[in-house]
Design a binder for these strands. Structure first.
Lengths: 206, 206
DNA sequence: CGTAGAGTTGATTGCGTTCAACTTCAGTGG
DNA sequence: CCACTGAAGTTGAACGCAATCAACTCTACG
């Protein structure tokens, strides 16, 4: 969204593959990333043995803002599909902060936005039942995919989705089946067709 | 936590009473607050009719950071008990940002911290069952209360706690009963006595 | 063709919700 | 000071969503 802010900054580009980590939780924070193409997931290692997916990243998202706080990244970010990312190093950013003080405001706004988004998501996840959350998740993914048709290719596994939504994989499976039975979507593996856009906002002809 | 950052800033003080609002969701953002004394709750009005408590504020917490994003506050903050708050206006803060560019870094760190905290809370709430969440909630309240004994006076109602934890009031009641039966706490109305601090610091907390 | 991971289905169990009734507490006015 | 009132808190019974366990199919890829 606010990726434009960092246009003027010095940055390095790289093209990580599926499975690669941009960084892991606990690594020393040395900069943040702009995802230009591809997708990634953010994982937190909770107390104990099990991980929790706290979010997915899509093109134009900023990755690694969690690291400013105490100088180490607070989540692990793993690439889901071949991606292109810009990296803006901490030092370059700090230099730019002094050269262009108006960028501080932009960064503060960006962080505040992220804070609000997480807050709303958290509230939403606790109030709505699993089916509503799933449909909302799919709609958000759809919106992020620069839709050219009423279709969507999921970049992540069922296990990842279930983990993110806080439900069991089996439950997710049954929910997808339920949505299909209701005529809202069609799902073949990771290919999703939306069936409720017949007359509403979708602008394309497909 | 980072309240010290704003020591040098121009600020106005006020003493809101229980029930007062510092601001409501949708109000024009004109500054943020430092809670010096008392307590407050943050409420989000979700789509529909029902509200959701997304957090409680304790002394030294910063309130209103959610407003930087799109120039309006994104939550309503209501005072729970007689409080003292500093307000730092948006304009004063922006002036200070130009005068002391190092403050930008501090603010960015503060926001990043908040982001991480919300993220962890969100993950925690989705993974743990209600009893663990409640005990964790009580422990956090205890830690925020500058403990002088193993006791705690809850500033909020059962309804508020249940709403925040995402459970029914009746469930909360039964959980408290359960924790009491286990010998972890004693609860008389809003007065809580912790019974598990006898020998170890906290083996199962956190 | 064979294997391992991904995805699906069925049966059973349990945690937390809902609804309804009740008790306790705090504040108000007579 | 006591009686009244409404909010806050508690208890019980029944229901339902989602978890768990186990078995199975499908898909990708060597």
């Amino acid at each position: 969204m606010h990726e434009g802010i960092f246009k003027q900054l010095k940055k390095s580009i790289s093209c990580p593959e599926k499975g690669d980590y941009l960084f892991k939780a606990g690594d020393t924070f040395d900069g943040f990333y702009v995802l230009c193409q591809g997708s990634a997931k953010a994982v937190c290692t909770q107390s104990g043995d099990n991980d929790k997916i706290v979010g997915f990243y899509h093109p134009n998202n900023i990755i690694g803002l969690c690291g400013f706080g105490n100088a180490t990244y607070q989540e692990s970010v793993q690439i889901l599909s071949y991606s292109r990312v810009f990296k803006i190093s901490k030092d370059d950013f700090n230099d730019a902060l002094h050269a262009m003080p108006e960028m501080a405001g932009e960064m503060i706004r960006l962080l505040s936005d992220n804070l609000v988004r997480r807050q709303h998501n958290s509230a939403f996840n606790m109030m709505q039942d699993a089916e509503v959350r799933l449909m909302s998740f799919l709609n958000e993914l759809y919106a992020c995919s620069r839709p050219r048709s009423n279709q969507l290719e999921l970049p992540m596994t069922r296990v990842d989705i279930a983990n993110y939504l806080g439900i069991a994989v089996e439950t997710l499976c049954r929910l997808i089946k339920g949505l299909t039975k209701k005529g809202l979507i069609e799902a073949h593996n990771r290919h999703i067709v939306f069936r409720h856009f017949d007359n509403s906002t979708s602008s394309n002809a497909a």
